[in-house]
Design a protein around this nucleic acid. Structure first.
Lengths: 217, 217
DNA sequence: TGTACATCAGTGAACGCGCGTTCACTGATGTAC
DNA sequence: TGTACATCAGTGAACGCGCGTTCACTGATGTAC
């Protein structure tokens, strides 16, 4: 059992100078910072402050600021993957293979857009690094199924190919097309002019974009 | 005539303590900083250092760091507009109105992608603010024609409408569709995995994306 | 044409900030006997 | 069951950094006479 007690500020009052679960607490703090201010706001000192611990205590658990940021980024990517998978799980399997494949791509896009809108700070953090997302097999960045967002997109396109909805010559590089369109809109929706738009209108625009991708691919 | 002489570092050796064109020099420095490190790298102290001037001298010309950043952003947007206009100017006017309208949209997209690839730091600076681009009529953010990038895109879509290439019911909100797709790819191309891709391949992907937008819109 | 003077661009010094990171340390913990 | 001890998580103090910004100043400039 934890010997720690929450104080009014939400930080911990420790009976001992031993925290108990500092790595986790720092990660949580880093996630909170990313939520509020994006990747640039993730700082070791701020995280230790929030955890109620000396600044240098962070170095028992993270090698550097970059290391913490990476962990937060992994979390953000896994959350995104989970939202996409939730959307995929809602699909009606009792439709034709072709329809199901098409709906799968839409579900990936819709989950992506929903996440970006609901978690702008985390969304930006997820894509703040130039490290390619697609080459990553780190399970920490994956959702329930163990796949990361890019792999989920690839899977959806593969199913469209298999269902004969996507011509084989169009398959290579199709990720870039779909990802570009959805990612661009996700930025508008997370940050930009579309963030404060009424839900219905924003969703309609999202659906139109997904129409465009489906028809244009 | 300037009394200033370039020294070896490219900064100025002033005979007098009067600079002569400090606002311009600071803006140039800010642009250079943005080019190299994106919006976060634009700092008053760094700019004054590069201009060979005391840190607080900046306040004779810019009210704050934010003010300098805004000026750099305006420059970046106007450069983007100019690249797009250059692309538009290369269109062959001796084609059918429909073809010309379609080519116009492609030109806007191609210019956008070319700028993002060639100037990643400036590109990110141009869109670092959440201030809507479309509502902006500031001539400092416009190109030769006085139109900003968003207005150039709107114009291209209008011409498609007039040429009968874009159904009227599809016109409203079409900016968001086209902008999303191209902006998403521009990010991949400026920063991401597609930056170091061979020119031919990258351009081919750009063209495919523009195909998708044209067909899917 | 020459001189006094007001203007205001750039100076020099300083402030407080938050940051990442290193050092030698201390004391709570779990374990070996 | 009790005690000595090694481990290592968190401490306290300090470093140097670059940043934005404010203050009272100084001296080159252009202008009015």
């Amino acid at each position: 059992m934890s010997k720690n007690v929450k104080n009014t500020a939400g930080a911990r009052e420790r009976e001992t100078y031993r925290h108990g679960d500092l790595r986790h607490a720092l990660l949580e703090a880093g996630i909170a910072l990313a939520r509020e201010g994006g990747p640039g706001a993730v700082a070791l000192r701020a995280a230790t402050r929030q955890a109620g611990v000396a600044p240098n205590a962070a170095y028992r658990h993270f090698a550097s600021r970059e290391d913490l940021l990476l962990a937060v980024r992994a979390y953000a990517l896994s959350q995104l993957a989970i939202v996409i998978e939730t959307e995929l799980a809602r699909l009606d399997p009792a439709q034709s293979r072709a329809d199901l494949a098409r709906a799968g791509l839409r579900a990936v896009g819709a989950g992506y857009l929903a996440f970006a809108h609901a978690n702008p700070g985390l969304f930006h953090t997820a894509f703040s690094s130039h490290e390619p997302v697609e080459a990553d097999a780190d399970p920490a960045k994956a959702g329930h199924s163990g796949m990361n967002p890019f792999q989920l997109l690839s899977g959806a396109l593969d199913r469209m190919l298999e269902a004969g909805v996507l011509p084989p010559q169009r398959r290579p590089g199709a990720e870039y097309m779909a990802w570009s369109a959805v990612h661009g809109l996700a930025l508008l929706v997370s940050d930009g002019p579309l963030h404060s738009m009424p839900d219905g209108m924003r969703n309609a625009i999202g659906q139109r974009l997904l129409d465009m991708v489906e028809k244009g691919l």
